[in-house]
Design a protein around this nucleic acid. Structure first.
Length: 693
DNA sequence: GTAGGGTTAG
């Protein structure tokens, strides 16, 4: 034991001695003490504090301490302040440890300023005081103050303890400064805490939060006996990095070592399975969870439910939910929003209506479901209901409302929302502000979007730039988009999505030069040309009538997905190179990529151009027989065009008989025209009659 | 020491 350790024990003994004297000296007020104790034991802390506050005499120090601790555990700020006030009234120089308890209480209640003020006013402090104020700031997410205090503490020669480091590490998880984290890691080692599981776990956590999993994992592997929390942290960090596989691997390692997982760990692993759609592994983890008796755990069963929803196993999901015994507000909301965010608004609403209680988050989740599913009228109805049932809406509600305005292209409603946002001070919330910008862009009010973008000035971020850029590109104002793109680079780093938007903008006008410049920018700045960008480039070049470049870009792809194939196939059609479409289709099949309805639109258009009537019908039939794709109106449209254009009216008549729906106006007028051309009176008359109807 | 629910662009 260190010298300071011993002296502090003596200090405490000495203080107890004083406490003792205090009780003896104040014999008459033991009744006050008893009353306070009675109230504390009955859980009525407010009452206990009231009794204290009314007492014209001090009580024993140990009782003050108990009161502070009670206030901490129940977050009673007013009561904590009363206790401090009473204490200082009767003992202007109370023992340090008591004031430390007060600081802790203020911290737990979320009142950092009270904690700091008291700390600054203390005539004398011990290591505990420093720790108390650091912990208070750390708990309340005031990292700057934590570091300031920590540096001051070191300057004053106060030795950092485990508690100080745990506060500082927690704060460094908020600001994510890797250099700082490395320094702290060294400091922890230098102070001789290298065998301390808790601190090592914190270090694993902050490296992970800084997204440096190699270091995080190295520190983890060095821990002698990782605790359940250590395992929880490493699994969680892998999950958050998107490394779902490693999260699962670590979970199974933990089981091998016979460490019982925490409920949060099980929940993280299930989330990992759900995110990678690894249903089979997920079901194994589900079985493990059952075996380890986690079924009654709300957190675990909620994540199992969510996994089954995301993997499309609705019946299983519902079974898990119905079997969950203890459901709280969070698990109800989570389950309901699982449906809502997967587009199953009907199921979501069913749960929503069953919920025993709801808060703003539940309301927002349901509303978000309608918005995501583009069910605008349902969303509006729901908003009306919401207005009747709950008092307030918040920033999230506003974002969904703005989405409804965009969806309905209702700029009037959007402006009303803008007014509300302004009046209630939500205009400084960057997410709301960006949603507003997006709304103006999607409603085609580029003027308003521009104005608002300028008003946002200080607030705006990369998303704001992208939102405006998308708005401009959407209406084909690509020159303006590119000049914004130049402005953007002074403020924010364009993401690959920005560039994809820009390329789409070039494709629309079409603007080959800007498109080429964008291509060059991507290469010069070392952007990863992923499948999305590549698709945008193929599309841009083919729309700019530069098919050879498109083919070049297409060929360079290491992997090709359906969308990329579709882009090049449509590009060939668009540029009159229909013959190559059939070749491409064969290559696509060879690579094992399954065509979809878009692919077939391209093929049928190629048949129309090339006059392949028989082949066109063969492809059309193969859609349902070989590829199990239900032909849509557009495909029937193509077939009608094919038959009409080449005068195959016999086949057309047969085809029309098999068509599962009524011909639309476009088809009818095409048929009518063809019959006129080829003198096919009966069918022509029929088409004319239908047209008149 | 960690820790389950709703939020913006593409």
């Amino acid at each position: 034991m260190t010298v300071t350790g011993i002296s502090s024990i003596f200090g405490r003994l000495f203080r107890h001695d004083k406490t003792h004297k205090c009780i003896i000296r104040t014999q008459p007020k033991t009744s006050v003490t008893h009353q306070i104790l009675d109230h504390l034991e009955g859980g009525n802390i407010s009452k206990a504090v009231s009794v204290l506050f009314a007492s014209p005499e001090p009580v024993a120090y140990w009782l003050y301490e108990r009161l502070f601790r009670s206030c901490s555990s129940k977050s009673l700020i007013v009561q904590a302040r009363k206790v401090e006030s009473h204490l200082l009234t009767f003992s202007p120089l109370p023992p340090i440890f008591l004031l430390n308890r007060a600081i802790e209480a203020y911290g737990k209640c979320g009142f950092v300023n009270d904690a700091r003020e008291l700390f600054e006013q203390m005539p004398e402090r011990d290591g505990g005081s420093w720790n108390a104020v650091i912990t208070a700031c750390a708990q309340n997410n005031v990292p700057d103050e934590v570091f300031r205090t920590f540096r001051r503490m070191n300057r004053d020669g106060i030795r950092a303890t485990e508690t100080s480091f745990s506060g500082v590490l927690k704060s460094s998880g908020l600001i994510l400064d890797l250099r700082l984290v490395r320094q702290l890691h060294c400091a922890v080692m230098k102070h001789g805490f290298s065998g301390n599981v808790d601190l090592e776990t914190s270090i694993v956590d902050v490296y992970g939060k800084c997204r440096v999993m190699s270091d995080s994992r190295r520190v983890f592997d060095e821990i002698q006996n990782p605790s359940d929390v250590s395992w929880n942290v490493i699994v969680r960090r892998y999950l958050e990095m998107g490394d779902n596989d490693e999260a699962v691997v670590m979970f199974f390692k933990m089981l091998e070592l016979n460490v019982r997982p925490l409920n949060h760990t099980v929940s993280s692993v299930i989330l990992a399975c759900s995110r990678s759609l690894a249903l089979e592994v997920g079901m194994v983890v589900h079985a493990i969870a059952v075996k380890l008796d986690f079924v009654p755990d709300t957190i675990v069963s909620t994540s199992i439910f969510d996994m089954y929803v995301k993997c499309g196993r609705l019946e299983r999901a519902r079974k898990v939910f119905d079997q969950t015994e203890s459901k709280d507000l969070k698990s109800w909301t989570s389950a309901m929003s699982g449906y809502a965010m997967s587009g199953m608004t009907r199921e979501a609403r069913e749960l929503f209506d069953l919920m025993p209680e709801r808060n703003i988050i539940s309301w927002n989740a349901m509303l978000g479901g309608y918005v995501r599913a583009s069910e605008w009228d349902e969303a509006l109805d729901f908003l009306n209901l919401m207005r009747q049932e709950i008092e307030d809406i918040d920033n999230v509600t506003l974002v969904w409302i703005l989405n409804v305005c965009s969806g309905k292209s209702d700029v009037q409603m959007g402006k009303q929302a803008h007014g509300y946002i302004y009046r209630h001070g939500y205009d400084t919330d960057v997410i709301v502000a960006n949603a507003l910008l997006d709304m103006y862009g999607k409603c085609g009010s580029l003027q308003s979007a521009n104005v608002w973008f300028r008003v946002m000035s200080e607030l705006r971020d990369e998303i704001s730039w992208n939102a405006l850029l998308t708005g401009l590109a959407r209406v084909g104002r690509s020159e303006q988009a590119i000049s914004f793109f130049e402005g953007m680079q002074l403020e924010a780093k364009p993401s690959k999505y920005t560039l994809a938007t820009l390329l789409a903008g070039c494709a629309n006008i079409p603007a080959l030069n800007i498109g080429k410049a964008t291509h060059g920018f991507l290469i010069r700045n070392g952007y990863e040309i992923d499948i999305v960008i590549r698709g945008a480039m193929v599309d841009m070049y083919s729309k700019c009538r530069c098919l050879d470049y498109a083919i070049e870009v297409f060929k360079e792809a290491a992997t090709r997905d359906l969308i990329l194939w579709n882009s090049i196939i449509r590009g060939c059609c668009r540029n009159g190179r229909s013959k190559e479409v059939f070749e491409l289709f064969m290559l696509m099949e060879d690579e094992g990529v399954k065509p979809d309805h878009v692919t077939f639109l391209g093929i049928l258009h190629a048949c129309i151009r090339e006059g392949h009537v028989e082949l066109g019908f063969k492809y059309f039939s193969s859609m349902s027989t070989k590829y199990l794709i239900l032909p849509q109106v557009e495909h029937y449209d193509c077939m009608v065009e094919l038959y009409c254009k080449y005068g195959c009216l016999h086949q057309l008549e047969e085809f029309l008989l098999l068509m599962p729906f009524d011909p639309n106006i476009q088809m009818l007028s095409r048929i009518y025209g063809a019959c006129q051309n080829y003198g096919w009176q009966k069918l022509g008359a029929w088409a004319a009659k239908r047209l008149n109807e």
